[in-house]
Nucleic acid binder design. Structure first.
Length: 693
DNA sequence: CGGACTTCGAAT
DNA sequence: ATTCGAAGTCCG
């Protein structure tokens, strides 16, 4: 569809997008502003002499940007181009350095010193060179933002399937550019005005960052607590549950090994399935899934706790009109005081005073003791659907773990409805940065905010003794200064040999399935639920297999012929909604581009998981040896669990050239011996269930 | 949009 | 044993 008068650069593979030929070096001209290669012979007005070749601007950079934007920017863009030219002319810089400097200019960010940000803010974790390189190895540079050449921060994806940092992208747009910096496709105005963060890519990057620590993970430590192992992997799987709503579902298996009365962050040693713990910013579809990862156990109640012991977590959902959320700190309202008799689970009306009993008292105990309280935020319940959503607002609905907070004070006051409510001041105290910041470090102790309502408060409670969870000045991090309260549950459960046995099984199972599970969780197509094949990213930042996405609109035209009385009138555009949200994506559908960068990463991960398969099996067999006396009943017991097995693998494999096979020929004889046709693991049940949605 | 229906853990 | 809770879904 390329018209002759449209100028196009070379694509990511170096082929001219106009004539489809890959030009030789002599025939390639590189723009000195944006560093994009162009095919000389396809240019409408190629440079006339050598001098102008050296400092050549491509048609996109030399021409005026959008008139309105150019007017708004006035003379500054001229200065910018001059500065960029200067960088390009500097022979002492490598290409990468030039790219970085260009990006600094465009983004307005000035970093005098490369290492500065890496060294600052101690935190012991040290984003040293080693970690960085393994991180890059893993992603193989395929996701790098074209502006800054780094792993994209807050990645956004253009409809043409290219990924950039949100900030870099916005600066580019701010310069009046309306074409993709990589392929020169036009960027639709909606994307330009309101780029959405691609949360799947965020997950990719997070996984990549963790890959090193996971790879180095040693043998599993003794679990502390495991229960509900006979439950399904996912809540809401039975037919009955589907009929009656999600509340009917048996809540799923608990994946982490913390006791239900565990305080504070959930760390890697209690996460045998992933060996990463529950990370700040982790999101779940609903409260069932959140519960399975141990973050907030009650399925309905907003507060997890015991009145004599303390509260472990709270859910912040905006269900109480008196709540105020300021991010790093917020005011929380206690429970009770509402008449929920019968089935009025949604009654918002207060009909009597709240007192410090039950869960409210549990929160007060945590306040007095200075325990860390996990905070779960219900997304899209605090923020209205209607208000213009910022780039930072997650596009998914669900629950997000925001880290641990301390309750610095609590009191009672008259609520908006006249009845007294219990109030709690939560202040963040987590070693990981909050999901909404780009900080490298977690919280530092901060002064308490001033709370006007305290003047009218009664029953004010403050901490008297020193807090259990506090900031350690020497280590520069939050930690338990006093031992956390001992779990009252775990000891009992550990004493039960039956539980122990099941726990071991669960851990084994978790290990063998974890890679695949994570792939599925992070890269599942929102339609087929399998790992994405040929991923496409919508402008609203949702990801699907190309075929699923197209399938969803099969038979629907984007243009409707309006006819009345036999006469054809003007054609009218049809609005087609994204399968995951109400965004109109009919324009995007017209020219569907695969997110090849994302696809590459998925391929890498798939390969990696194949390679991991063998070591995992080996470890499994070792473990089976040392508990062989228990093995007899293992196989018989498990067979009825109609688990959702991943059936799509054979299909996928058959479509792709089998690189894995080729590589394996190195150690053929041994490889064949190791490789069984069907894994012996008991979770490979016959996949009779074609369990769709 | 509001009511009926369901689940699980905790507190009593 | 019984009650209740910052839930989720279907149905009218």
């Amino acid at each position: 569809m390329a018209h002759d008068n449209i100028q196009l650069p070379c694509d990511g593979d170096g082929a001219c997008m106009r004539c489809k030929v890959t030009p030789s070096a002599e025939e390639t001209l590189t723009c000195c502003t944006c560093a994009t290669p162009w095919h000389v012979t396809c240019l409408a007005s190629p440079p006339e002499n050598l001098a102008s070749t050296v400092q050549w601007h491509c048609p996109d950079c030399s021409g005026d940007p959008l008139p309105s934007a150019a007017a708004a920017m006035d003379g500054s863009s001229g200065e910018l181009f001059a500065a960029i030219r200067e960088i390009e002319a500097d022979g002492s810089l490598t290409e990468k350095e030039k790219a970085r400097k260009r990006q600094e200019l465009v983004s307005g960010r000035v970093e005098e010193d490369d290492d500065k940000e890496k060294k600052g803010k101690g935190k012991g974790k040290g984003k040293g060179k080693g970690e960085e390189s393994s991180f890059l190895d893993f992603l193989d540079g395929s996701l790098n933002c074209s502006f800054c050449m780094q792993i994209p921060e807050r990645p956004v994806t253009t409809p043409c399937g290219h990924n950039f940092c949100l900030k870099c992208f916005q600066k580019w747009i701010g310069q009046g550019k309306r074409t993709c910096a990589k392929c020169r496709s036009t960027i639709p105005p909606k994307m330009a005005n309101q780029p959405r963060i691609n949360s799947t890519l965020v997950s990719v990057i997070r996984m990549a960052k963790l890959s090193k620590s996971n790879a180095a993970a040693g043998p599993l430590k003794v679990y502390h607590f495991v229960h509900n192992q006979d439950r399904p992997d996912k809540a809401f799987t039975t037919e009955r549950a589907q009929r009656a709503g999600k509340a009917n579902a048996a809540s799923g298996k608990i994946f982490v090994t913390v006791p239900p009365d565990h305080f504070g962050p959930i760390t890697a040693e209690n996460d045998p399935a992933r060996n990463q713990g529950v990370l700040v910013g982790e999101c779940w579809e609903d409260r069932f899934e959140c519960r399975q990862w141990g973050a907030h156990l009650p399925h309905i109640s907003g507060i997890a706790g015991q009145s004599k012991y303390g509260a472990q977590s709270v859910a912040l959902s905006g269900g109480y009109e008196d709540d105020e959320d300021h991010g790093e700190w917020f005011l929380y309202t206690g429970s009770g005081g509402r008449d929920l008799s019968g089935n009025k689970r949604t009654n918002k009306k207060q009909s009597f005073d709240q007192t410090f009993v039950n869960m409210n008292e549990a929160l007060r105990v945590s306040c007095k003791m200075g325990y860390p309280v996990r905070v779960l935020l219900f997304l899209l319940m605090c923020r209205s659907h209607k208000e213009k959503r910022s780039s930072y607002a997650p596009e998914k609905k669900g629950v997000r773990y925001d880290g641990v907070y301390r309750i610095e004070k609590c009191w009672r006051k008259a609520g908006k409805q006249g009845f007294k409510v219990c109030r709690y001041l939560f202040v963040r105290c987590d070693n990981e940065p909050a999901p909404w910041t780009s900080d490298e470090h977690g919280d530092m102790p901060r002064p308490l905010p001033s709370i006007p309502e305290l003047k009218k408060a009664t029953d004010i409670t403050e901490r008297e003794e020193s807090p259990s969870w506090d900031f350690d000045e020497e280590e520069n991090r939050w930690k338990w200064k006093k031992p956390p309260p001992p779990s009252k549950k775990s000891i009992m459960e550990l004493a039960d040999p039956e539980e122990r046995k099941r726990a071991r099984e669960a851990i084994k199972q978790a290990r063998t399935t974890s890679v695949r599970e994570r792939l599925l969780k992070e890269f599942g197509c929102l339609i087929c639920r399998d790992v994405m094949n040929l991923p496409v990213t919508t402008p609203c930042a949702h990801n699907f297999c190309k075929s699923c996405f197209e399938g969803a609109f099969a038979g629907k035209n984007t243009i409707r012929e309006r006819s009345r009385g036999g006469r054809t009138l003007r054609s009218q555009k049809i609005v087609l909604h994204c399968p995951s949200c109400p965004t109109d994506i009919s324009d995007f559908l017209q020219n569907l581009q695969v997110n090849r960068e994302l696809m590459d990463v998925i391929e890498t991960l798939k390969k990696k998981s194949e390679e991991n398969q063998e070591p995992a099996e080996k470890e499994l067999s070792e473990e089976q040896e040392d508990e062989s006396e228990e093995n007899a009943d293992l196989d018989s017991g498990d067979s009825e669990t109609g688990k959702k097995t991943e059936k799509a693998d054979p299909d996928n494999n058959s479509q792709k050239p089998k690189r894995g096979r080729k590589r394996r020929k190195v150690g053929t004889t041994q490889g064949v011996a190791d490789k069984k046709d069907s894994p012996s693991s008991p979770l490979q049940v016959q996949s009779s269930d074609v369990d769709l949605e």
